[in-house]
Amino acid sequence: PVYLSVKADNSMFIGNDPVTDETMITALNALTEGKKDTTIFFRADKTVDYETLMKVMDTLHQAGYLKIGLVG
């Protein structure tokens, strides 16, 4: 499974590897070998604001990742 996490300080990680807004999709493409039907499990600290969550989800959708599971 692929886990994308947003921490309380808005830092992002794919698994244990830090990513930025600019590198997130490139890292996901490498990890999933470009398979856009891969489910991305998205988790965020409860203090992360809604705007940040939606920005990340919008970026995922624009890149073609449509299977996003929200996890606690």
Rank of each mutant, 00 (worst) to 15 (best):
P1I: 14
H61W: 09
M12I: 13
N16Q: 10
D9L: 05
E51M: 12
M12Q: 02
V6S: 01
V71W: 08
I14Q: 01
N29C: 04
T38L: 08
V56D: 00
F42Q: 00
Y65I: 02
G15L: 04
V19L: 03
T20D: 10
M57K: 06
F13C: 08
L53D: 00
S5M: 10
I40C: 01
E22M: 11
Y65W: 05
K67F: 13
N10E: 07
G34W: 06
V71G: 09
N29D: 13
G64C: 03
R43Q: 15
I40P: 01
K46Y: 10
M12N: 01
T32W: 03
A44W: 12
K46R: 11
V56G: 01
Q62W: 05
V48Q: 03
T47L: 12
G15I: 03
V6Y: 08
G34T: 05
E51Q: 13
A8T: 09
G64P: 00
M24H: 01
S5Q: 13
T32E: 01
L70I: 15
G64F: 02
D45H: 09
I68K: 01
L4E: 01
V71S: 09
Y3R: 04
T39G: 04
G34R: 04
P1Y: 15
N16D: 13
F42M: 15
M57R: 07
T39E: 13
D17F: 13
D21M: 15
D45I: 02
E51V: 11
D21S: 11
S5D: 15
V19T: 05
K67C: 09
F42H: 00
E33N: 13
I25H: 02
T26H: 12
T32Q: 02
L28I: 14
L28V: 04
K35E: 07
F13M: 10
T20K: 04
D45C: 05
E22Y: 07
T59F: 09
A44D: 02
K46G: 07
D21F: 15
A27H: 14
T39W: 15
R43T: 14
N29K: 06
V56L: 14
A44L: 12
V48I: 09
P18G: 04
N10I: 03
T52W: 15
Y3N: 05
H61L: 09
T59C: 08
L60W: 01
I68Q: 03
S11C: 08
L66K: 09
K46C: 10
I68P: 01
F41Q: 05
S11N: 08
K7C: 10
F41G: 02
T26C: 06
V19Y: 03
F13T: 08
V2A: 03
L4N: 00
K36F: 08
V6H: 02
I68C: 04
A30K: 15
E51P: 07
S11H: 08
F13I: 05
A44M: 09
S11A: 09
K7P: 02
A63L: 05
L53G: 01
Y3Q: 06
G34L: 06
F42Y: 03
G15H: 04
L31K: 08
L31A: 13
P18L: 13
A63M: 04
G72V: 14
T52H: 08
Y50I: 12
G69R: 15
Y65R: 00
L31C: 05
G34Q: 04
A30P: 01
G15C: 07
A27F: 13
I40L: 03
D58V: 11
M12D: 00
M24C: 03
G64N: 02
K35D: 14
F13G: 01
I14G: 01
F41N: 07
F42N: 01
S5W: 13
F13A: 04
T23K: 04
T20R: 05
L66M: 12
Q62C: 06
A8C: 07
M24T: 02
V2S: 01
M54G: 06
T39Y: 14
I40T: 00
N10C: 07
G15Y: 04
V2T: 03
G34P: 02
V56M: 08
T20S: 09
V56R: 04
T26F: 13
E33P: 03
I68G: 03
I40M: 02
T39V: 12
M54F: 09
K46N: 13
L66W: 13
A63T: 02
V19D: 00
L4S: 00
V19C: 05
R43M: 14
P18C: 06
A44V: 12
K55L: 10
V71R: 04
L66H: 13
I25W: 03
E22V: 10
F41S: 04
K46M: 06
D21T: 15
T59N: 11
V48D: 03
T38K: 05
D37C: 06
H61V: 11
E33W: 06
F42G: 00
N16K: 10
P1L: 10
Q62L: 11
M12P: 01
T47Y: 11
D21G: 12
F13Y: 13
Q62I: 07
D58G: 11
V56I: 14
G34A: 05
N29Y: 09
D58I: 12
T20I: 03
K36Y: 08
V6Q: 02
K67D: 10
D49A: 15
I25T: 04
E51T: 11
V6C: 03
G72P: 12
D37Y: 05
R43C: 11
D21C: 10
G72L: 06
L66E: 08
G64R: 02
K55H: 11
Y65K: 00
T52S: 06
Y3D: 03
I14T: 01
V56T: 05
T38E: 07
I25G: 02
L31E: 03
L70H: 09
M24L: 15
D37M: 07
L4F: 09
E51K: 12
E51F: 10
V2Q: 03
V48R: 02
A27G: 04
Y3G: 02
V19S: 02
Y3V: 14
M57A: 05
A8L: 06
T23A: 05
L53A: 04
T20C: 04
L31Y: 12
E22G: 08
I40A: 00
A30H: 10
K36V: 06
Y65N: 00
A27S: 08
I25F: 04
D45W: 05
T38G: 04
M57Y: 08
S5K: 08
L66P: 03
G15S: 04
D45R: 01
T39F: 13
V48L: 09
K67E: 07
T26D: 14
N29V: 08
G34F: 06
K7H: 14
K35N: 14
V56E: 01
S11T: 14
I14K: 01
I68S: 03
T47G: 15
E22C: 04
V2R: 02
G69Y: 15
N29H: 12
I40G: 01
D9H: 07
K36Q: 07
N16H: 09
E22I: 09
A27N: 06
L53Q: 05
M12F: 07
M57F: 11
G72H: 11
I40Q: 00
Q62Y: 07
F42R: 00
P18V: 08
T52C: 05
V71N: 10
T38I: 13
T23E: 08
N16T: 09
T20M: 03
Y50C: 12
M57I: 12
T59S: 11
P18H: 08
K67L: 08
L31W: 08
I14F: 06
I14P: 00
T26L: 11
D9K: 06
K7S: 11
K7M: 15
A30R: 13
T52A: 08
I40V: 06
I14E: 00
L60R: 00
V56K: 05
N29G: 05
A44Q: 03
R43D: 10
Y50G: 10
T20V: 04
K36L: 09
R43S: 14
T23D: 11
L31N: 04
I25R: 02
I25S: 02
